[in-house]
């Protein structure tokens, strides 16, 4: 790996693209949510690659911060999903159209 980060970056970009596509294509709230996490982790992977390249610890630390953040986001996100489910008994993103115009 040491001197050729390209392959890892390609993986990261691919993950990012898959996440984006998932967000656009899927309707289920949970899957959309997972797609977003995928994008976040694609970015984290790229940061790790560069951290290794430069031998810089900041990048590694940042990776852990992103992980912690993702966990916090999931907690809040999932609780909102549950609140929505209580109100509607459905988890379809296309149903979130009460607010528009």
């Amino acid at each position: 790996m040491a001197n050729d980060p390209k392959a890892y970056l390609v993986v990261s970009v691919l993950l990012f693209a898959i996440g984006m596509a998932g967000f656009l294509i899927r309707k289920n709230l949970l899957i959309v949510f997972l797609s977003v996490e995928l994008m976040l982790n694609a970015g984290a992977l790229a940061i790790l690659v560069f951290a290794r390249l430069y031998g810089d610890t900041d990048g590694h630390v940042f990776f852990f911060l992103i992980l912690a953040l993702a966990a916090a986001e999931s907690a809040v996100g999932l609780s909102m999903v549950i609140a929505l489910y209580r109100l509607r008994h459905k988890l379809d993103t296309d149903d979130l159209v009460e607010l528009r115009g």
Partner: peptide, 17 residues
Amino acid sequence: LSFGQTGLLRGYVGIMI
């Protein structure tokens, strides 16, 4: 313009992308 504001999440993200 506000007609384009459909409320659909993926529309919003699509325009963002």
